[in-house]
C-alpha cells in the first residue's frame, strides 16, 4: 500500500491532470426510475486521462450516474433522462446517437465480475469479434495478449488461454473483465466498485492497474471505500441523495473540503 501511496504522490503524474482537456461533460442531468427522481440537476466535467472517483453513501445515485455515462440505464425499463451528457462535445442522448458505438468508446467494468462462460481467450476476444476490430486471427491474438498484459493478467493465464474463464479466482476474473473492456480500446473506462468483492491483495492489484491505465484512458471509478478513492484518484466527486455535493482535487477533498456535508461524510459523521 505504501508503494501505491508513494506513486500517487508522484508530481509528474499529478501535474498532468491540470492541463488536459475535458473528455466528458455533464450538464443539468436529471434521472428518473419511473416517478422516482434518482439524480437531481448534476453538472460535472471529467478531464481526459485522469482518474475520477465517485464517493457517497449507498443509494446516493453514484452508480446510477456512472451508468448514464454509457447509457447502460437504457436497458432498465421505465427510466428517463433529462439534461445533457457530452463526450468530446457530442451529446450522447441526442436522437440518432449510436449506442453501440458509444459503449465501444465508453467501456465499463462491473461490481461483480461477470466473465462469459467461455474460454479466457474468447472472453477478451468477444468485444473485438462483435465490433469486427481485427482482420486476421493473428491480429486478434495480438490484441488479446495486449489487453491481458494491460490488465496485468497475462503472466498468470498465458499457458491456459483455452480453459474456462470461470476457473479463475475472483480477483483474476475481475482483471479478465478489465482486459475484456480494454481490448476494444475505449476512450473512457467506467468502473463500478470494481474491487468491492475482492480481498486486499486482489484489490491492491486492481488499484495498481488503475494507476497504470490512466496514462492511456480516462477512468471514472465508483467506490464505497474512501481510502481507495484517496489512493487511486486525482479528482473526487461526492454524491448525497442524488445530488452532487462537491467535486474537488482528491487531496483537497480529503484534507480541506469546501462543503460541510463532505467533511461530515469523510470524517464518518454519517453514511
Amino acid at each position: 500500500m505504501t508503494q501505491i501511496l508513494n506513486r500517487d504522490l508522484n508530481p509528474d503524474l499529478r501535474s498532468a491532470s491540470s492541463v488536459v482537456k475535458t473528455k466528458m461533460a455533464v450538464r443539468n442531468l436529471d434521472f428518473f426510475y419511473g416517478r422516482v427522481q434518482a439524480l437531481h440537476n448534476i453538472s460535472l466535467e471529467i478531464p481526459e486521462r485522469i482518474v475520477m472517483a465517485f464517493i457517497g453513501p449507498s443509494g446516493c445515485g453514484k452508480s446510477t450516474f456512472l451508468r448514464t455515462l454509457n447509457r447502460m440505464n437504457d436497458v432498465i425499463p421505465a427510466t428517463r433522462v433529462g439534461g445533457q451528457v457530452l463526450i468530446d462535445d457530442h451529446d450522447i442522448y441526442a436522437p440518432g446517437t449510436d449506442v453501440v458505438e458509444l459503449r465501444r468508446r465508453v467501456g465499463m467494468v462491473f461490481q461483480k465480475s461477470n466473465p462469459f462462460p467461455k474460454s479466457i481467450f474468447e472472453n477478451v476476444a468477444y468485444g473485438l469479434r462483435i465490433n469486427r476490430v481485427t482482420g486476421s486471427s493473428s491480429e486478434l491474438a495480438g490484441r488479446v495478449e495486449e489487453a491481458l498484459k494491460d490488465a496485468a493478467l497475462w503472466n498468470e493465464v498465458k499457458d491456459r488461454l483455452k480453459t474456462s474463464a470461470l476457473s479463475l479466482s475472483g480477483g483474476q476474473q475481475q482483471r479478465l473483465c478489465i482486459a475484456r473492456a480494454l481490448a476494444i480500446r475505449p476512450e473512457v473506462l467506467l468502473m463500478d466498485e470494481p474491487a468491492s468483492a475482492l480481498d486486499p491483495i486482489a484489490t491492491s492489484k486492481i488499484e495498481e492497474l488503475i494507476f497504470d491505465l490512466k496514462k492511456q484512458y480516462t477512468i471514472v471509478i465508483v467506490t464505497h471505500n474512501m481510502q481507495q478513492a484517496a489512493r487511486v484518484s486525482d479528482t473526487t466527486a461526492f454524491f448525497l441523495l442524488g445530488k452532487l455535493i462537491e467535486v474537488n482535487a482528491t487531496e483537497k477533498m480529503f484534507t480541506a473540503p469546501n462543503e460541510k456535508l463532505t467533511e461530515d461524510y469523510i470524517t464518518g459523521r454519517f453514511g
Partner: peptide, 10 residues
C-alpha cells in the same frame, strides 16, 4: 452477463 456484453458494444 447481459450487461457485460452490452457494455462491450454488442
Amino acid at each position: 452477463l447481459r450487461e457485460g456484453a452490452l457494455a462491450l458494444g454488442a
